[in-house]
Structures are given as structure tokens and as C-alpha cells.
Design a protein around this nucleic acid. Sequence first.
DNA 1: CTTGCCCTTGACGTCAACGTCAAGTCCTAG
DNA 2: CTAGGACTTGACGTTGACGTCAAGGGCAAG
Lengths: 133, 133
Amino acid sequence: MRIGELADKAGVSTRALRYYEEQGLLRSQRTSSSQRVYEESAADRVRLIQELYQAGLGSRLIVTLLPAIDAGEVGPELLTRLLDERAQIEAKAAVLQDAGRRLDMLIRLATHPDGQSCPSSLDQAVAQDSVSP
Amino acid sequence: MRIGELADKAGVSTRALRYYEEQGLLRSQRTSSSQRVYEESAADRVRLIQELYQAGLGSRLIVTLLPAIDAGEVGPELLTRLLDERAQIEAKAAVLQDAGRRLDMLIRLATHPDGQSCPSSLDQAVAQDSVSP
DNA sequence: CTTGCCCTTGACGTCAACGTCAAGTCCTAG
DNA sequence: CTAGGACTTGACGTTGACGTCAAGGGCAAG
């Protein structure tokens, strides 16, 4: 398949695909006239790349990550980086969940205008909420 | 306190503080010679702003989030926005958690180099993982 | 008074992950 | 054979959260 079809299947732009190749994330065969040709499996690979981007990883990390994923072997140095990134991701998720709970409290305040039962003590409510998921 | 001291206490640059003010995230008093003056509570506010940035939220979202968080009063119009942004936050958190599980898989692959049981099928593993938390 | 550090606004630089032309080439349908 | 869509490389534009000078003002110590 050529670049347009892959872009459709993977749900990204052709520009993105050329960029991935530029960054060493994606390879392609070429026809005699320099047109890129991909195998079917490329769509899955592109989706994987997208998900890693969505997770907030940068291309430099991804470019070292992908061969490790393919090989199924992760060296100790890369492992350290992964654990680090994992911790950062966890922290981000925690902050987001906390913000989400704060928003929930605000929303409840807005939809239950009973001004008395909830003395706008957001933090208490958040604390309560977090001990009983 | 002036801007340098606040920068130290909050662990950010003075440039960042001026940027926050520019974006409407942070206010300051001014001396007769235009120097910024902050109260002690500003450090906590800056740390909160930092955490929200760290979580991947943009200033436009934060600037609407902050007043809502510390006002405790939400009008119906803002409520709509909040519900919307709550959904976006949830989506982001979900992506992050999924990415975290993928990284866990990689890390397990790295720490359990048993090359046979996991033929690099990350997606399956993640799928398995998500049905049994 | 002057040295020296902190402050001011203004404006340009950066980096990532692309978007968006531009100008030319390739390929397929009719 | 030709029209028009898909493809090529090249290069500049964008957005966000600052970094980094630049040119000058403010102020306490010696």
C-alpha cells in the first residue's frame, strides 16, 4: 500500500507518516520512482506510535523503545528510563484524577444548590472520595 | 515578597511567573515603581498551577479552572464547560493509564526475560489486563 | 556616588509534532 | 493521450511554555 492508504487506515495524515520516517520510527520500501510502499502491518505500527505519543512520550524515547518492543528485550538502561516515565505518567494521572474530583465537587455544588450541606470544603470532600473508590 | 523570592519558593523561574500573570493565572500587587509584590499564599498557587501544567492541561483550561476551584460557585454556563472539560480530563487520564499498562508490560518483558510466553503481543496483554484490574 | 544585585518591559529564540503551501513527478481511468 | 488525483522533496508556519538577551530603572551597602 502507498502512503495515502496507510494514512487512511491508521487515521493520521501523510505528513505525519513522513515525519515518523524522518524520525526513524517508521520504515518504507520505495518504488523505482521513490514512492513509499508499506506492508499491511504498518497500520498497526503507526497506531502503536500514535498511542505512545498520546501517552506523552517523545520521539527520541519512542525511537529507542520500538526496537525494544519488537525484540521483546529491554536493556537495564532503557528499563530505568521506562520506570521513570512510568512514574511521571502515574503522577500526571493522579493530578488529573484529583482535578477531576475537584470538578465533580463543583458540579455537585452547582446542581445541588443547597448551600448548607457542603460548606465548599473541597479538599475534605476530595480526601473522603479518594479513600473509597 | 518580590518575584525572585517567590520563584525560589515555588521552584520556577521569574519568567514563568510573569508568563502566568500574562495568562491571567496569577495576580500581583505593584509597588510605586512597578515591582511585583506577592503574598505568601502565592507559592501554593504557583505549585498548583505547575501541577496542572504537569498534568498536560493548557493555560486556557487552567485559567477557567482556577476561579471555579477557589470560588466554589458555578453558573450554568460555566457548568457546561466544566462538564465538557471533565470529560476531556477523564479521556486524558484513561489514555495515560492505558499507556502506563503498556509500559508495565514492557517492564515485565524486560524483567522476566522468558522469551517464550509473551510473543511481543502487547495489545493482547493490555486487553487481558484491562478486564481484570 | 558608585558598585552590584534585583527588578521592569520588549522582543526574539526554542522545541516538538506536525500543518500548509509550492513546484514538480507519477499513475490510473477514460 | 490526457486529465486529475496521488505522490515526491523542500521549506516555511503554528502553538505553548517558557529561555534568553537587551536596555534601562530601583535601591541598599560601602
